[in-house]
Design a protein around this nucleic acid. Sequence first.
DNA 1: CTAACAATGGAGAACGTTCTACATAATACC
DNA 2: GGTATTATGTAGAACGTTCTCCATTGTTAG
Lengths: 336, 336
Amino acid sequence: MTSGRVTIADVARRAGVSTAAVSKVVRGAYGVSAEMQAKVTQAIDELGYRPHAAARALRGRTYTLGVMLSDTRNPFFPDIIEGVTGRLGDTEYQVLLGPGGIEPKTQARMTDAMIDRSMDGLILISPVMADAELAAIATATPVVVVGRHGGSAAYDAVVDDDVMGAGLVVDHLVGLGHTRIAHITHLERARAQGLPHTVRAEGYRQAMRAHGLADDVLATSFTEEGGFEGARELLARDERPTAIFAGADIAALGVLRAADEAGLSVPEDLSVAGYDNIGIASLKRISLTSVDQDGQVIGATAARLLVERIEGRSRSVTSSVSPTLIVRGTTGPPRR
Amino acid sequence: MTSGRVTIADVARRAGVSTAAVSKVVRGAYGVSAEMQAKVTQAIDELGYRPHAAARALRGRTYTLGVMLSDTRNPFFPDIIEGVTGRLGDTEYQVLLGPGGIEPKTQARMTDAMIDRSMDGLILISPVMADAELAAIATATPVVVVGRHGGSAAYDAVVDDDVMGAGLVVDHLVGLGHTRIAHITHLERARAQGLPHTVRAEGYRQAMRAHGLADDVLATSFTEEGGFEGARELLARDERPTAIFAGADIAALGVLRAADEAGLSVPEDLSVAGYDNIGIASLKRISLTSVDQDGQVIGATAARLLVERIEGRSRSVTSSVSPTLIVRGTTGPPRR
DNA sequence: CTAACAATGGAGAACGTTCTACATAATACC
DNA sequence: GGTATTATGTAGAACGTTCTCCATTGTTAG
């Protein structure tokens, strides 16, 4: 059966015009009479013609945008994706996601693959590759980087204002009366700078300083286990903190487990806050105070910037999205 | 610098051979001398040549496999993706994910887009479209369907043995001494048959019958809210069940919340089990008994079948993966 | 009534591959 | 030494679009 795809030539034959004319109609280009428009549109509908993306790619647009995901497991991604696809829903662009893995090497392989497939533009979510490499990609194709501070002239960027987010948490805890507030962050592995956890830690330090309090940062990792280990260490100290602010919700869950095991009740003996406001944070059983980034807005913004860039803007833009604090059951005044 | 992509012609010029020869080397085709092989490989490395996927697509392979995801938010997908990419890691194939949404219409749009981009094959995860439409897609391109029972001659399928999984739960609960075991399922919206929840419900019924017990199925939805509402209804009955088996973990979380609110302790007053073994089920704070599908194996199997199919197999295959029961803290003997 | 111009449609050359034929060179066989 | 066979390399036609010229109409200006 070798399906025999309907081509632009088939449409042209059916409508009794040239392929060039059909192409014009399809692209909405200048120089088409109303009559031509009607004839061709009808033929397209009758035959069920759909332009072949690969053939298009050889000459111009492919109407495909790539989104490179680092960690597929991050429960925060779906929101971003939804924002992106939502924004693009009624345009001709299609979004494809590329699982890039967490290694710089695999991420590079993925972005290369996307460029090979001549995507019109790329959204890179929390890429870990070196700045130079990022810049190289950005000269090959329009790029928007999400979740990495300190942009470049070569690409656009959308970031959550992590300094502000961390500040919101500290302010909230201080307002409740806490003074010994510890922070659990992620151990820096990659050489990439400006990753969210670094900025959150810095924001925490700034806020603590602003309140005249001593900071206390412990670096483990943004996993349940990392949060658990970090909390265990913090809680074993002589003067244990009365509040722990984990740089990610998943780590905060580990902190909660450590509190359980240490027989501490939350929030009476220990307040716990996270970051990201992942879905389960709102489950009554967890009820975790967290910072919400509104991934939908981030995704939608990234999509908008990318399309603008593709369609000609050359000046680089960095958009910062303000987070909000969602107060739930894991934070409260310290027991005195 | 608009370097102008390195093409096969550049390589040919550099190596002093024809483009046809380079093409042969790149594809590892027959009829290349060792000397030719060396010359060309060197030229490729020197120039950093990478084949242009779109140009390839126009003639033959594109070495791109598409995975259509229905609900991006389903925490079970990452495992499948990992299985797929893991399996394909050392081949030339690249995997791109397409967020298809939960509507038949948007899913159809996505699969169309993937076909337009001449992907070599498609893995469809829990597609909701009608059987006929599925068959149509499968004639256009190789297809593997994941998570939908009752395959077709036109495509391969990988399914979790949901009947068995449901049986495992029922056997476990009966073994603990339960007799009033209710099941919460998802309300059928789509006309598609053979979706997991249907099969799980059927497996539950079969297993209950096998133990000589009366079944009790309530259809709400596979969301936290759905589980909550369902459990509330079940627990309000005169003879309330001593165990609730939710067809999905996310719903089981809602059941747990309902139990909390009703002042019932788990598992003493109520045993709760889910399905899918999502990541948070293992968190100590949740510790949910669940059925594990081993998404990695499912993904890897799907990838294997798809590649086989692309490379020539024509007979259709259905592969069934056996689930395992993970017993945790939410199930125990009923209080008498 | 002609010159200039705008509006419309079409021819045909790309784009970067693959792959079928075919030409040539090397080897085997008798 | 001649012929058949095999191994190796190349020419060149697709593949399905886009897009730059052109060619043909009308239409307007003078």
